[in-house]
């Protein structure tokens, strides 16, 4: 068991989410930075979809009531186990009674804590992810509270190690973050100016940014002509433009359908960057083709698979 000592209600249990039920209105949910959750799981030899903790409110503290193996990935900042600092993207073992403390990060917005064999909660609709908007999955469909106790597998100590794979190395949070997007169905209905602005403006994330979506601040994106749309399916990453002309990125807990025109969809391989960008971050959108989007995702999965394989070899050598 682990016990939550300090938390905020926006911290929750997440895996890779619920797929395949968008048609009946079930949102994907799952980690906002799926890449970091997968790296954390790969470091522990877990299934990449194993449930971990998504921490967005800091400081966060938990106590191990038994020896366990865990990894901390995602946003980078001060992380200590029993007072000893841990490097970024690190897997280690905790002894009974030790406390893990995650301070507000210096780079990024969300930290992931994974545990060997995952967190044991009952799956709902095929996933352990918490849908905070609809109130199911994870721990009673809610965020974490002080005093919550979670089941993790007891594990003997291991030599600590980390991931050389460092997605954050390429990100400079003091500058606009480059994010790739595929033009969406109504892209051509936006004015030439709007289309130019979309890929040239440095869009700022407003305070209205949560697991459902981010509102962006920038120039008004105008349509060439009035458009009446039927309600249609949308995905995490869809960028809608409501009548205000200010784009909204739909994210993990977003509704599965909407009626606003869509200018673009952020590619899956870059959605983790959005998950790591808090309010006042800036995005610079680059247009790519669906083929380029798929290739980027394949490259990313290949890197994670390579990490998982290396961990497997290292574990078999270590016994």
């Amino acid at each position: 068991m682990i016990e939550v000592l300090t938390t905020g209600a926006a911290n929750s249990i997440q895996d890779l989410g619920r797929n395949g039920r968008f048609d009946i209105g079930v949102s994907r949910s799952g980690a906002m930075d799926r890449l970091s959750l997968m790296i954390g799981n790969a470091l522990l030899g877990n299934e990449l979809n194993a449930a971990g903790l998504e921490i967005a409110i800091f400081p966060f503290r938990l106590r191990f009531d038994q020896p366990a193996r865990f990894a901390v990935t995602g946003a980078e900042g001060a992380v200590t186990l029993a007072g000893r600092p841990l490097p970024p993207r690190w897997a280690a073992s905790a002894a009974e009674g030790e406390t893990l403390v995650i301070a507000p990060p210096d780079r990024g917005a969300r930290v992931y804590i994974t545990f060997a064999d995952g967190i044991d909660v009952e799956p709902v609709l095929g996933s352990r992810a918490t849908d905070l908007k609809s109130g199911y999955g994870g721990l009673e469909g809610r965020g974490l509270k002080r005093g919550d106790r979670l089941d993790v597998m007891p594990k003997p100590p291991m030599r600590a190690f980390g991931a050389a794979l460092d997605p954050f190395a390429a990100l400079d949070f003091t500058n606009p973050l480059p994010v790739r997007a595929v033009p969406a169905a109504e892209h051509s209905v936006f004015s030439a100016d709007a289309r130019k602005l979309f890929s040239r403006w440095s869009w700022r994330v407003t305070q209205e940014a949560d697991r459902m979506g981010y509102r962006l601040e920038g120039p008004e994106l105008k349509l060439e002509r009035r458009l009446e749309l039927m309600s249609h399916g949308i995905l995490p990453g869809t960028i809608q433009v409501p009548p205000s002309g200010k784009p909204i990125i739909q994210l993990a807990d977003a509704n599965t359908c909407g009626g606003y025109p869509k200018i673009a969809t952020i590619i899956e391989a870059d959605l983790w960057i959005v998950g790591q960008a808090g309010p006042d971050s800036r995005f610079l959108f680059t247009e790519v083709t669906p083929d380029e989007a798929n290739a980027a995702l394949r490259r990313q999965r290949h890197e994670i698979d390579a990490l998982a394989r290396t961990v497997e070899v290292a574990r078999s050598l270590a016994g």
């Binding site: 190690f161 980390g162 050389a164 390579a306 961990v311 290292a314």
Partner: peptide
Amino acid sequence: EHQIVGFLELGEIRFA
């Protein structure tokens, strides 16, 4: 004493 002063990377993983 015990400070992590660097890493040795072996493929995709690193040791302190």
